[in-house]
Amino acid sequence: MNQTQTQRRRLLTAAIAAPASFGLLSPWAHAQTWPSRAVSLIVGFPPGGIADLTTRLVANHLTRALGQPVPVDNRAGAAGNIAGQAVASSAPDGYTLLSAPASLLAINPHLHRMTFDPFTDLVPVAATGRVFVYLMVRANLGVQNVQDLLAMLRARPGQLTFGSAGNGTSSHIAGEKFTSQANVTARHIPYRGAAPALTALIGGEIDFLFDSGPGLQAAQAGRVQLLAVGSRTRVPALPDLPTLHESGLTDFDVDTVFGIYARSGTPAAIVARLSTEIGRIMQSTEVREGLVAIGAGTALEGSPQELAARVRNDSERFGRIIRERNIRPD
């Protein structure tokens, strides 16, 4: 073998070895320089709703914390699955994140044919907020509290109606859990969205509804009656409002946790940085007040592990109700 052939062989060997070497070093090196450009935050709902407004509030503060733009990308449709698929199929480099309610992971797999596995294709980064769900009745129903409503439901089995934002939605599952746990029956009336369902309650077309917050103004104006919040703890902004747990439905909890997720395989150092920064953001008075102002409940803090545990617990609880009540999506 002459000198030229030897040199070519050395170059070829180096070229073959280089990708392996870079593959070992790139996650560490990438994490050290991240972020060097904009970080996209995808949300699976249209602009103007609680999911979108919560995401934008976090994105504005995350832009300051990271020193790079964090634009919000609305990809609505398929109950959030379109957005989830976009992140699940993205590069695991920390530049494409998902902002989503726990329902995307905890409810959708029980109802929809998924094109990705949210528990293996996504990794939890941080919780961002908890949206409370309220039990409301039409103003002229003639009940004053949860006990009155349950007594009426027992006296008139199958005659009262409850609305929802559609079959398989969180409000539908909340209503089914309520009637199941209380051992009463009521007729479900699905609408095409939360707003039409609330309008129906105000108009007296249905008897009760689980609402995520937009109905609070109607309750304040006396157009609907607010009975309880569907969580284990009272709402800080409404300290006199009882929980369904206190009203006799032990451990009743249908509130929604919002969180940030990354593509699985994202370097641990990037996930840790994001978790720390978002945790600081959620502790700020400005963000906490902002969440209350947009009706998004309260800020949450917690590790990725705590968020993952909450989502898995929700998946087990809601999955059981979906199976028992034979819930199907529209």
Rank of each mutant, 00 (worst) to 15 (best):
G94W: 00
V292G: 08
A186T: 02
D93C: 11
Q147D: 15
A272R: 11
D148Q: 11
Q144P: 14
V292M: 13
F318P: 03
G248M: 11
A91D: 11
L97Q: 02
F45H: 06
A237V: 12
F208V: 10
L227M: 07
L53H: 04
R223K: 13
P239T: 08
I294D: 05
P71G: 12
G230N: 06
A106N: 04
A221W: 04
Y261W: 12
G77F: 03
G168A: 10
S99K: 08
I281R: 00
A268F: 06
E306I: 09
L111Y: 07
T128E: 04
T6M: 04
A194R: 08
T250S: 15
A174P: 02
L150M: 12
T250E: 14
T96S: 10
A309Q: 07
V70I: 06
A308I: 03
Q159T: 11
V72M: 02
L12R: 12
Y261N: 01
R288G: 02
L122M: 01
L291S: 02
S26I: 08
P214Y: 04
A293P: 06
F258E: 01
P35C: 04
T285C: 05
R320M: 15
L135S: 03
A293E: 08
P118M: 00
E301H: 14
D207R: 04
L104P: 01
E301A: 15
Y95P: 09
A91S: 14
L111F: 06
E289P: 04
D117N: 05
M1V: 08
A237C: 12
Q7Y: 14
I16M: 07
F45G: 00
P267F: 09
V123F: 06
A218L: 10
P47K: 10
T250Y: 15
I260H: 04
N313T: 14
P71E: 10
R192T: 09
Y191F: 12
L241Q: 12
T266Q: 08
R192Y: 07
E205P: 12
P157H: 03
T199N: 15
D251T: 13
L209T: 04
G279W: 00
I278L: 12
P236V: 10
D93Q: 12
K177P: 13
Q181E: 15
H112A: 08
M114F: 09
I322R: 01
I322C: 08
Q159V: 07
R280M: 10
G44D: 05
A182F: 13
F162S: 00
Y134D: 06
R317M: 14
A102T: 10
P267V: 11
S231F: 08
